[in-house]
Design a protein around this nucleic acid. Structure first.
Lengths: 338, 338
DNA sequence: CTGAAAGCGCTAACAT
DNA sequence: ATGTTAGCGCTTTCAG
């Protein structure tokens, strides 16, 4: 059928032929090997350009060349947290000429397992994963795959290979201690779908522990089976305050989105912050710090987690030693809402 | 640490041998071809499972099989807009078992060109790109690559292949007309780095056009060479109002982040909305709608753009016809801040 | 429905 | 510094 228009893309062979060298020499030239003569380099580059040659990395990688793809598995893209992490990963990867290949697990271990298998089948150079209850099969694939794997967000569990994150339990603990030290005594909690977001659950657990330690306890606890949002936080606080009897002096929200919603409710209802009610969140989002009264919160270093994870992969690929566990920490932000 | 067993991964050949069939039959079985007998299917699956076989899609794609990777090039991940778009792309792709391979151009045509070449070298099934001033070389690669390409966000320019988005100029125009109809007359604008964000520039241009049409004009215009943020919007409004003489009755912000900053400034400065000053934004972010007074804005359908773009790619791959241009539109949200 | 042959386009490993 | 030889692991023909 097709004869006049050769739709076949030019191959390395044709570039080599036109440059008057062998395939492997053309290959070396195009990949920037330092063994080729400047003269042949020029010839090859010219030939490639004039033919509109486009490297085929499938073939290259299959033949044993390196891959510049890194699998990235995240539970969601809806909350700002994971885009921030992804941004960090991308930033660091980009500088090295690598690309993230994305998979979203929707907090589902089965989907996660499927994704791992799918992404590994492309033989990526590494894998970054924010685990959502990995199955045994998932772990088996990862440990058998012989590539650098970084589990991110949490460092509260034992990783297959490497882990980068922070202690969410520790963050909850630190916040509670800070608030206790400032004299708060009647604590309430408003949270989103804790069943799926086990990191929020860990923060709450830490928070409660510190209260218990101090002989105190949560006087009220409202949680929803929905993802976090400003509107949900607002609704949660309204419910809490309208409910019978609860009169906390501080409300700990599952994250900043929720907490900002709480602040908005106070503004709308004429509740003065922090005199009548104090509020604390988690994440340290820009929005919270730009509020008329800056939010008390814990800054999580989301982009840094991503960057560090990517850096671990890249380091490992160059044969450098890497830490098994990296704690990027968190910072307490004492704002005006408490 | 390693076992004595050669860590070479099992290949299709070994699966086939163990199942007592030929390679190609095993291949067909594993790919879910409907021509294999249920019995052989079972045998092959068993063999694969017992060997811990992991498909090698590099080899498959090189041999002419389909790819399930789709290149996605975005200018940034810092603003919520592009994560939202990416989410849409991912959602739609995921259902079909495809994965986005990500590249961030940082609004730089040269980086963009490099990314195109890089991503195409993996022979993806398609490409989604939010263009940032594509070079001629970029266009040439895309049109020569013989794969579905969707340019997203804008539909104000002529695409190489397909385009999905909305008219930003039209959005600015519509907002100005709406505000004029509501009686506003003294307009100011506060914006972020318009040099890079040509979509924000298009909105402003449309806005101005409508004013001109109505015999009006912008009475003040503050722009910054920084990315948009809540803090920047807040700073911008403070500057504007403290400056000499400017007393607009409405401020149009380059987007909702900026506009929310403006609202916060008003709250902090005791400026009553919308009596003393009215505010309008762009995007329709959740945060703006959860404010004590919901923000007047234009809702952009970001995730829908992503979903539609992905759908176009997938459709084309199955041979279906696809529209060259898809306008997902926008919706004016008449909030309480105007 | 299953199989045999023939590469896909490139690069590692040795040559020279 | 450049070339030769062999595949990488799979899937497309085209046969049976």
């Amino acid at each position: 059928m097709n004869k006049q228009k050769p739709p076949r893309k030019p191959t390395l062979y044709e570039v080599a032929a036109r440059a008057g060298v062998s395939e492997i020499t053309a290959s070396r030239a195009l990949r920037g090997s330092n063994v080729v003569t400047p003269e042949t380099l020029r010839k090859v580059q010219e030939a490639a350009a004039s033919l509109g040659y486009l490297r085929n990395r499938l073939a290259g990688a299959l033949a044993g060349g390196p891959s510049n793809q890194v699998g990235v598995i995240l539970p969601s893209l809806s909350n700002i947290v994971f885009p921030d992490v992804l941004k960090g990963v991308e930033d660091r990867l980009e500088h090295a000429g690598f690309h993230p290949v994305l998979g979203i697990s929707n907090y589902d271990p089965q989907q996660e397992q499927q994704l791992i298998s799918n992404l590994l089948s492309w033989r990526p150079a590494g894998l970054v994963i924010a685990p959502s209850g990995m199955t045994d099969a998932s772990r088996a694939m990862l440990s058998g795959a012989d590539l650098p794997v970084v589990e991110i967000m949490d460092i509260d569990t034992d990783p297959v290979d490497m882990a980068v994150g922070m202690s969410h339990r520790g963050a909850g603990l630190a916040m509670a201690r800070h608030l206790l030290a400032r004299g708060y005594r009647r604590f309430a909690y408003i949270g989103h779908d804790i069943a799926r977001d086990h990191r929020a659950a860990a923060r709450l657990e830490g928070f409660k522990s510190a209260l218990t330690e101090a002989g105190s306890t949560l006087s009220a606890c409202v949680t929803f089976a929905e993802p976090s949002s400003v509107a949900l936080g607002r609704r949660g606080l309204r419910m809490l305050l309208e409910g019978d009897g609860a009169s906390p002096d501080l409300v700990y929200f599952s994250n900043d989105d929720m907490a900002v919603g709480g602040v908005f409710h106070c503004m709308a209802a004429g509740i003065s912050l922090p005199d009548q009610l104090a509020i604390a969140g988690f994440n340290g989002l820009e929005i919270g710090q730009s509020l008329p009264i800056p939010l008390t919160t814990t800054a999580s270093h989301r982009a840094l987690i991503g960057e560090t994870a990517a850096a671990c992969i890249l380091k490992r690929l160059t044969g450098e030693d890497t830490a098994r566990m990296t704690d990027v920490g968190f910072s307490l932000v004492a704002g005006g809402t408490s």
